[in-house]
């Protein structure tokens, strides 16, 4: 049975190596489909693991598809059908989680995004993923072919795994006129980048007591040379900006140190901080879900701890 790995324009090397790691545990040979022309994809020869038997590169002269994937999904679906791929694996990101279900619909297959594991038993595919607001892990059988999945597995290395060189076969997406929208404008969000890549992050949750509490957390962040994030309730109350929200539907942070004040520790929020190396949490409820995700915890009133931290940091102010 033919299988393929799909590499999308915004994938980085951690994504690609993560996919290479996943296929090590699955039988059969794989093809590699590269999409787009950015950076490392431009090499004419590509280093790949032994399991990869051929590379197909889909070039696109106008990669900006901020509003839709219509033409990609149809072209890819046609190619997947032509090659009789029974399994398609991609990394999970904002693009693949829209593109893959769309391709699957065209092919009438089974699709699951953000899977955490993939197993093959007796020619059947089983996957796991988080459900119920990320509190539960569910196992599914994907019954129809092709099986199309995205995974959030990332490799710890951002270098190529050099095994062998393969020459690519080039393909081109057909050019089409997108006339269903007009006045397209884009704006880069710089603040999110700062939070996403920060080495130290402080997060203000609902328990910080409103705008004053949030401002104090932001002041501590400044003194500690950290970035400030927040949880959904503070964004919904208009206290913090939308782009500061940490969690599965906001920014996923991975700092060396993450200090959280007054969050209940709801699973979607926990997903956003779980990649932190060391997590500190402050909450006055000893039964709070927050402490499930922390390395160090303080059971106390958040406002008191925040005030004491500010006092301790005053000598460094100004």
């Amino acid at each position: 049975m033919s299988r393929t790995i799909l590499v999308l324009p915004n994938d980085d090397l951690e994504n690609i190596n993560g996919l290479f790691e996943i296929i090590e545990n699955i039988g059969g040979a794989f093809d590699l489909i590269l999409i787009g022309d950015s950076g490392y994809l431009q090499e004419s020869n590509f280093k790949v693991p032994d399991k990869i038997q051929s590379i197909h590169h889909f070039h696109d002269l106008s990669m900006s598809q901020p509003l839709g994937f219509g033409r990609y999904s149809k072209s890819l679906a046609e190619f997947i059908k032509q090659q009789s791929y029974s399994l398609v694996i991609s990394s999970a990101n904002e693009d693949s989680n829209v593109l893959l279900p769309s391709v699957s619909t065209v092919l009438d297959g089974s699709c699951m995004t953000d899977i955490t594991s993939l197993n093959e038993k007796a020619d059947r595919f089983y996957v796991t993923r988080f459900v119920y607001n990320m509190n539960i892990i569910a196992e599914f059988e994907l019954c129809r072919r092709p099986v199309i999945v995205s995974t959030s597995h990332r490799s710890s290395t951002s270098k190529w795994v050099p095994i062998k060189f393969l020459k690519k076969t080039n393909h081109f997406f057909p050019a089409t006129d997108e006339n269903w929208f007009s006045g397209l404008e884009s704006e880069t969000i710089t603040e999110v980048d700062g939070l996403r890549n920060a080495k130290k992050v402080l997060v203000a949750g609902r328990g910080v007591s409103g705008k004053k509490g949030y401002d104090k957390v932001a002041e501590i962040s400044k003194l500690l040379n950290a970035k400030t994030g927040t949880t959904r309730p503070l964004v919904q109350e208009g206290i913090a900006a939308n782009h500061e929200m940490v969690g599965s539907s906001g920014v996923i942070v991975s700092p060396e140190k993450c200090l959280i004040f007054g969050s209940s520790g709801a699973a979607p929020f926990a997903f956003g901080i779980d990649k932190s190396q060391i997590i500190f949490g402050v909450n006055n409820d000893p039964e709070s879900q927050l402490f499930r995700f922390c390395d160090y915890g303080i059971i106390d009133d958040c406002s008191l701890i925040i005030s004491e931290l500010l006092k301790l940091l005053q000598p460094f102010n100004g």
């Binding site: 009438d108 569910a138 599914f140 059988e141 129809r144 915890g297």
Partner: peptide
């Protein structure tokens, strides 16, 4: 196209160590 096989609780991976002190000031330090 999808069959649910089973559900299981998402286990927690971190073991929280609590910081104790006589008051908030000590804990903050």
């Amino acid at each position: 196209e999808i069959n649910l096989i089973s559900l299981s609780y998402n286990p927690v991976t971190r073991n929280c160590q609590f910081i104790n002190g006589q008051n908030a000031g000590e804990k903050a330090q």
